[in-house]
Amino acid sequence: MGGKVSATLGEIKNRADFIMYWGGNPAECHPRHFTRYTLIPKGKFLPNGRKDRTMVLVDIRETASARAADQFLQIRPGKDFELITALRAVVKGLPVDDALVAQTGITTETLHDLARQMKQCRFGVIFFGMGLSMTRGKHMNSAAILTLATELNAFTKFVTLPMRGHGNVTGSDMVMRWNTGYPFGVNLSRGYPRFNPGEYSTIDLLVRGDTDATLVLGADPGATMPQPAIEHLARTPTIVLDPKVTHTSKLARVHITTAATGVSAPGTVYRMDEVPMPLRPALKSPYPTDEEVVLKIIEAVNRKAPFAPRAESMMRTV
């Protein structure tokens, strides 16, 4: 996600006096987010901690996180994009149609009050979860909320961060970005990277039956993906690297047991604010790490004929 206005969680802890969670339930999914990073801690510029901060929660239902919020805004499912767009208009002082705003489940009055709070804070942050980025509108919703935060910088300091779920999903974005230029769904079949979510994203590829072999690392698509995708994984050769024998391992042709990340495998993991953290494993695994197995597979593939001409064979000495 290039071009987003962001900050580290440390900066948010020390400065953010307006905190918004949109489509996420940190109380149950990221239990220490409030206490360690955002709401509760006393910060350099917020000596009274929670008392100095305002928290607004936007979601389609009242989750456990609503109890921690100063204001809970319940919106109609699938109306996130409309609400963000209306909010962007109000922030800029443009007229909005009351009837259109009412469709989102929020009154124009509440919307104006929200825009006022956002413009008057000293340092605002929007955390958005999968309730925003995985519902109707998908990446267009994410783009809209990133734009809202960017535009608010005309009035005050405003940043936005996605609430990342899995441990090192941020790391995979980072590593793919610095290696290929794109964060996920990168097609290297022509020997150079191409990026097109929807075309090169896993579920779409598997459901269409485009792939003819899959290497699964630290994931269990056999338990989580739609049935046609699972059937395609079973039909084609699938290789799984995982600390456990998973659902996917059972339909795979090859499974290799690896050490558990952070528990018995060392390395680096990125936090959701893109800060890298070293791991300090407490146990010694009898299994190799994912990294060791991947490097062994590379060695084994390198012993075979290349699928495309290698650079050195194309070079000519003049």
Binding site: H166, V169, G171, T214, V216, G218, G267, Y270, D290
Partner: peptide, 14 residues
Amino acid sequence: MPLIYGLSNVTCEA
């Protein structure tokens, strides 16, 4: 057309 998928629960080195 091979696919490498997952990566969320492994280290940056992997």
